[in-house]
Design a protein around this nucleic acid. Sequence first.
DNA 1: TACCATCATACGTATATACGAATAATAGGA
DNA 2: TCCTATTATTCGTATATACGTATGATGGTA
Lengths: 141, 141
Amino acid sequence: MKDLEKTLRALADATRLRIIGILLFQEACVCDMQRVLGLAQPLLSRHLAYLRSAGLIRDRRVGTRIYCSLALEGEVGRALREFLQTIMPHFGPFHEDALRMKAHVERSGWMRRGVSDSAQSENRRSGKEGDNEDQSSSVQL
Amino acid sequence: MKDLEKTLRALADATRLRIIGILLFQEACVCDMQRVLGLAQPLLSRHLAYLRSAGLIRDRRVGTRIYCSLALEGEVGRALREFLQTIMPHFGPFHEDALRMKAHVERSGWMRRGVSDSAQSENRRSGKEGDNEDQSSSVQL
DNA sequence: TACCATCATACGTATATACGAATAATAGGA
DNA sequence: TCCTATTATTCGTATATACGTATGATGGTA
């Protein structure tokens, strides 16, 4: 968690709030977020860079894909997570974004199981679960 | 509490954070804040207007003086208060501002008791206590 | 009414920020 | 190596924002 001012500045933009809203549920890859949020790729990339620079997210690369997750640790991070979990349902686009992401993930899961990338799917299911502590969330739709 | 985006934008400025840091302790008048924070009067006035517009503070006039206090109600407001109480001690100027305000209030109280404005002092002590619920705070120095 | 204290608002300026379009960098497969 | 998918970065532009300076508005007292 970086500088407090930088953190709060990161929250002061609707696009970045939408990104955070998605990540409150679970890790997501940039390409999924791009489609679900309907953002231009460069724009999304820039906002992610900002959030990364502020220490709010971290990422990992799997092949060509970057998976992002929230990085809320320490006292301030925990307080921020709680705060976000309380306020985000009050943020206009939050629910629709969440539904779209859920639908997208289910559709994508189906495609993966049926068509392609089974090796990557195995990779995700068997070996990466332990790394995704940031996925835990108590926000309920 | 107004629009969530506006609220978060209000937090994205160091000067406004300093103002909020002072008000986390208790209601304060504009003139005291101006002196303690060392801000130009028009600047302080503008930032207070922003915070007021965002629904984060409210004020009351007593003669020529405006007293400001935090207005954190409802689910989001309560969450925000908790969040602020946790994070503000991590904000650089917070502690010094608080000490300066404390010293200022003690010095001012002395001057009031000794020299002038005893009617106003009585007014503040006897009749306004019930209105200052927002003064309660558990932030400890 | 004049004067002073307190606070709000207008004007101008420098800087920050968000975004679109274009391009560059990285990874993977044939 | 070439091509494609994914992502990062650059460039230019419009808008927002923070601040200093000057002025206006409100309240109180002599």
